[in-house]
Amino acid sequence: MQPSPSLIPSRSNLAGWLYVSPLVLVLVPFFVAPILVVLAASFFATDGFGGLTPGFTLASYVEVLHSALTLKLYLATIKFTALTWVLTLIIGFFVAYFLVFHVRNQLLAIGLFLLCTVPFWTSNIIRMISWIPLLGKEGLINQALLAMGVIHQPLEVLLFSDLAVVIAYVHQLTIFMIVPIFNSMARIDKKLIEAAIDAGASRFDIMRLIVVPMSKSGIALGTIFVVSIVMGDFFVVKVMSGGGSASVVSAFYEDVGVLQYPTAAASAVLLTLVLVAIVSVILRTVDIRQEIAR
């Protein structure tokens, strides 16, 4: 045991630093340093062939902000984010609600909960490829609809489209909603539900007035996960849209491909700021500290 830190101020500082040192050792090289590098690169000039000239210029930002493409990509990304968020929220909320309030057997609830994680036993790429036999032109859905005579031409919109992108996102990210919402719902004392019934509340009243407000912090956490993952993605968009759609990140991925490092860096910084703004709005509305602290 070390001597009580509060007695000797200088020692207390040292002890404090020792406590946080593992986190610092991870965060500084793998998080802070790359961000600083990107931030620095966004202000550098370039010779157009990958060479960077150290200095300070806002040229890259001017270029990014003046490009009509930037706005278009942000709108596209926000559209994907909003759709994915709404769908994962609805599905995630009801899955969690079902598991917490309708599955009486706790073992069964845990089993079903684990079932939700099954898609994650395989890689992201395989999960996306596995949509092809279902959604493709010759896929199961088209075949079924053709056979039933609902359609006469295979639906092209199913695969390599915005719809496919959203389906893949929802498939991938619903679990990120389920887990935190499940977590906060599981903490709701069942007696509260009974008290609400006693007061005459309907099922809908209970959900609206008790369950939703008390799951707010879980919803906020899930939202942060989903929004930041979708906004930071380019891979799913690229694969599932068949190259037909792009996101903010795919644009600066292209920039990197053609050695335009400063504009890529400036786009990255911009996106980071947008995400920070979104997350801080969420944190301002919902106090998730209680969720983490409890």
Binding site: A195, D198, A199, L209, M214
Partner: peptide, 14 residues
Amino acid sequence: RTAMMFQSYALFPH
């Protein structure tokens, strides 16, 4: 037309 007061009260915390 009954009402119950629960053990440990079950007040809505929010």
